[in-house]
Structures are given as structure tokens and as C-alpha cells.
């Protein structure tokens, strides 16, 4: 396991007067798959959106590769190597599959780092052959599973050093969920660093090196994926007994 690449320390986030995140701290090391699990409203997505710069914490610090993320304007965060696959996929439905992928590489084109985009496109098509077949189709015509693949491919196009995924299994048929998690496992093997937010705790913990359990805006338990999978309390609360 490498050095910590992402360090979140004691962040507090509010939605108006609602205190959504109450002092969460955790870290992700290079090459690790870390998962945040918890029920609806535990603050998992809020945490990811705060790291991505969509939300600003009232207090606390977030550092990414040694740099203070809170001092970086949100649109520059992607350039630093942090990409998010948002909850509900949020692909651009009226753009083609290829255009969606190109948008993922948006910041790379800006700074004369456009070389390699074509190769990465092929790499993404390698992970998700369905996307290649449909590259000229409007993204809105894809099925739910294909849309999730597109959202993941789009995030990969920025060549992220850390990939954050928010509920990749949401709304997908069990067979597709398995497929998505197989791909996450494959990415892990190639050395990708992933922060995974999931309600499907069993799936998430089975691919993760470590996990944090969130409850109403706080970290209540942490441990390796196996530890958490076998913990009776976790089993009872999140894995259905």
C-alpha cells in the first residue's frame, strides 16, 4: 500500500441549517479501494461532492496529493487527477457516447496534453466494448447499465489518480451490478485508486481493501473489507443478518 493520496480531516458540511457531515475523517492510499458504506442520508454522497468541490465544508481540511483542495477552484480539481462518477450517472443524454467520453478528457485538451486521448478512448472501449459499438449513438438511448459504464468511462478519460464512484450499482439489475463490480475489481488489479460509495455494502466490501461505515454524518466503524464483512454488528445492520 502506498502513501495516503487523499486525506479528509474533520470536515463539517451544512445544507442550510442541516448539519449533514459531522466531523468525518478518513484517508485513501495509493492503489487502494476504499469504500464508504451506510444507509440513505448517512452523508456518503455529500462527502464525495465536498471532495469534488461541488460543496464547500464549513470547517475541516481535505488534501489531495499533499495539496490543500479547499484552495483549488472546483473546475481545477479534475486537472489534479480527481474524477467522480456521480450518483445517478448524470451522463449528457443529448450528446453522443463519444462526445461524453471526450467531455471526460476536457481538461486534458486545455493544456496541450491532448496526446494520448485517442489511446485512452480505445482503453475505455476495451473495458466497455458496448460503448464502442454505440459510440455515435445519443447517450440517452443507452440502457441503464450502459449509461453506468459510460459514466465510468467518462471519468476514466481524465486519467484520474483517484476515481470516486457514487452508487455505481444504483438502479441496476443484479447481473449488471455484478458486472460493474467485476470491472471495479479489474481496475483495482491494474493499480487504480478508488473511493467507492455504496448502499450495496456486501458488494462494496467484497472488492474493497478498507471500509468506513457512516451513520448520520459520522464515521462509526472502520476496518478492512473482510473485517467489516464478518463483523456481526455490520452483518446485522447492513448485510441483512
Amino acid at each position: 500500500m502506498g502513501a495516503p493520496i487523499l486525506k479528509v480531516e474533520d470536515i463539517n458540511v451544512y445544507y442550510g441549517s442541516i448539519h449533514a457531515i459531522k466531523g468525518i475523517s478518513f484517508e485513501v492510499c495509493e492503489g487502494e479501494v476504499v469504500t464508504l458504506i451506510g444507509a440513505n442520508g448517512a452523508g456518503k454522497s455529500t462527502t464525495l461532492n465536498t471532495i469534488s468541490g461541488l460543496l464547500r465544508p464549513a470547517s475541516g481540511s481535505i488534501s489531495f496529493m499533499g495539496k490543500d483542495l479547499l484552495r483549488v477552484p472546483p473546475h481545477r480539481i479534475v486537472e489534479m487527477g480527481l474524477a467522480q462518477v456521480p450518483e445517478g450517472r448524470r451522463i449528457f443524454l443529448h450528446m453522443t457516447v463519444k462526445e461524453n467520453l471526450e467531455m471526460g478528457a476536457f481538461t486534458r485538451e486545455a493544456h496541450g496534453k491532448a496526446q494520448g486521448i485517442e489511446e485512452d478512448l480505445e482503453k475505455v472501449y476495451g473495458f466497455f466494448p458496448r460503448l464502442k459499438e454505440r459510440s455515435r449513438q445519443q447517450a440517452g438511448t443507452l440502457s441503464g447499465g450502459e449509461q453506468q459504464m459510460l459514466a465510468m468511462g467518462r471519468a476514466l478519460m481524465s486519467r484520474p489518480k483517484l476515481l470516486m464512484m457514487d452508487e455505481p450499482s444504483m438502479g441496476l439489475a443484479p447481473i449488471l451490478v455484478e458486472q460493474i463490480f467485476d470491472i471495479i475489481g479489474d481496475m483495482h488489479k491494474t493499480g487504480a485508486t478508488i473511493l467507492l460509495v455504496e448502499q450495496n455494502a456486501r458488494m462494496a466490501l467484497s472488492v474493497a481493501d478498507r471500509g468506513y461505515v457512516l451513520e448520520t454524518g459520522k464515521v462509526v466503524t472502520t476496518g478492512t473489507g473482510e473485517e467489516l464483512l464478518s463483523s456481526p454488528a455490520i452483518k446485522k445492520a447492513y448485510l441483512g443478518g
Partner: peptide, 24 residues
């Protein structure tokens, strides 16, 4: 064009566009 596509991306979903690193 790159900016033109960014414009379309923003008009569909500003949050997602920002996650692409587009300056909304």
C-alpha cells in the same frame, strides 16, 4: 469545438459539467 461541446454539457447538467473540469 471543445468550448461548444462544453456549452452543451453545461446546458444539460451544470454539476456534471463541473465534474468534468469545465468552468461553468
Amino acid at each position: 469545438t471543445r468550448m461548444g461541446k462544453a456549452m452543451r454539457a453545461c446546458s444539460e447538467d451544470k454539476g456534471a459539467a463541473q465534474l468534468m473540469g469545465i468552468n461553468v
